[in-house]
Computed example of a mutant assay.
Amino acid sequence: MPTREPGEVFGPRMTLFADVLSVGLATAVACLPLVTAPAALSSASAVLRGAGEGQPATAGRYFAVLRRRLRVGDLAAGGVALAGALLLAADLALAGAGLPGAGLFAVVAAAIGACALVVGLRACARPESLTDWPAALRGAARNAVADPGGSALVLLAVATAVLGAWMMLPLAFLAPGPLALALTAVDVRLAGISES
């Protein structure tokens, strides 16, 4: 078990916790334009994945990774994600207006939205998302079907982040860090299962 280095105030576990929070705050700031959310989460996952390989997981490294990758494809992915979220919200609002068959429609729309959310978030955690969104989405869709346990963990992580932000609004700015850590852990877990 790792011990504290000389002069280190907290142990390695607290250091990882602090790193996740700093990356989370940086991710929250980077997500503010909304169309940058997929690139921001993907960069956070890359930085946190690097922490397992001995690289520093700091906000400075996060912004360095993000700066290298904000390109047209990343902004297009953000635009598609934002358009999908707005379409789902509009569909659910229409279903709530009392149209015939609205209950069944709302359930189907929510299921489709949840599946799209899982695939999108799992794509953000994949290493291919740094360079090739279509490949990341294809791999995430395969993983979502092949690993239903991981997909359930992704939905649980999202529910936890939303619930925490709902209960105390300032926690919304901390939520992206633990969410990115959970997404990365699900992806690393699947890679470990595949290798064994």
Results as ranks from 00 to 15, higher is better:
A111K: 14
L66H: 02
G52P: 08
A180P: 00
V80L: 11
A141K: 09
A116H: 12
D74G: 12
G103R: 15
V162A: 13
W133G: 05
L117W: 04
G192L: 11
G52S: 04
V158C: 14
P12Q: 08
L181Q: 06
S129V: 01
P56V: 08
L174T: 14
A191Y: 00
A85N: 12
E53V: 11
A77N: 14
G24I: 11
V65K: 14
A161F: 09
T131L: 03
P12Y: 05
P127F: 05
L104D: 10
G139F: 00
V23E: 04
A26W: 02
S151I: 05
A93N: 10
A140H: 03
G73H: 15
R142C: 05
A146N: 03
E5C: 06
L181R: 08
G150S: 00
L32A: 08
M14R: 09
V186T: 06
A111S: 07
F105N: 14
R126N: 03
V47R: 05
A136S: 06
G164L: 10
A37E: 01
S194G: 12
R71S: 04
L156D: 02
S196F: 13
V162Q: 08
V35K: 00
A109C: 11
P176V: 00
A102V: 12
T131H: 10
A135Y: 01
L121D: 11
V23M: 02
